[in-house]
Simulated assay, not measured.
Amino acid sequence: MSETAQTPGTITEGGVVLVDPSVKSYTYTVNIAWSATLILLIALVAISLWRSARVKRALAEAEARRERMSNG
C-alpha cells in the first residue's frame, strides 16, 4: 500500500491529488468575482429603476398633453 501525505487543503482520491476549493488560494479570486457580480447586478437594477421613472414621467406628460388637446 502506498501512503500519500495529505497536506492541508488537498484531497486524495485514488492517488490523484485534488485541491480543496475551501483553501485560501482561491478566496481572493472568488471574492473578486462575487464583488463584480454584485456591482453589476446593483448597477443593472439602478439603471432599470431610473429608466422606468423617466419613461413613467414621459408617459404622464404625453397623457396630460393628450387630455389638454381633447378638452380644449
Rank of each mutant, 00 (worst) to 15 (best):
L41D: 01
T37F: 14
W34A: 09
A53R: 12
W50K: 08
A60G: 08
A33D: 11
V55T: 12
S35C: 05
A33Y: 04
A36E: 07
R54C: 05
T37M: 12
E61Q: 14
S35I: 03
A46H: 03
V30K: 01
W50S: 10
A64T: 14
W50I: 14
S52H: 12
E61R: 13
K56D: 02
A60K: 15
I39T: 07
A60Y: 10
V30G: 02
R51T: 05
N31A: 12
L49M: 08
E61K: 15
E63F: 02
E61I: 12
A46N: 06
W34F: 10
E63L: 02
L44T: 13
I42A: 09
L44E: 04
E61G: 08
S52V: 06
W34K: 13
W50A: 14
R51W: 13
L49P: 00
A43T: 07
I32F: 03
V45W: 02
A43E: 01
N31S: 13
R57H: 10
K56M: 09
L49F: 08
V45K: 01
A62E: 12
A60N: 12
A64C: 05
R51M: 09
T37P: 00
V45Q: 01
A62D: 04
I32E: 07
A53S: 11
R57V: 01
S35H: 10
R51P: 00
W50E: 09
A33I: 06
A36W: 02
R54N: 05
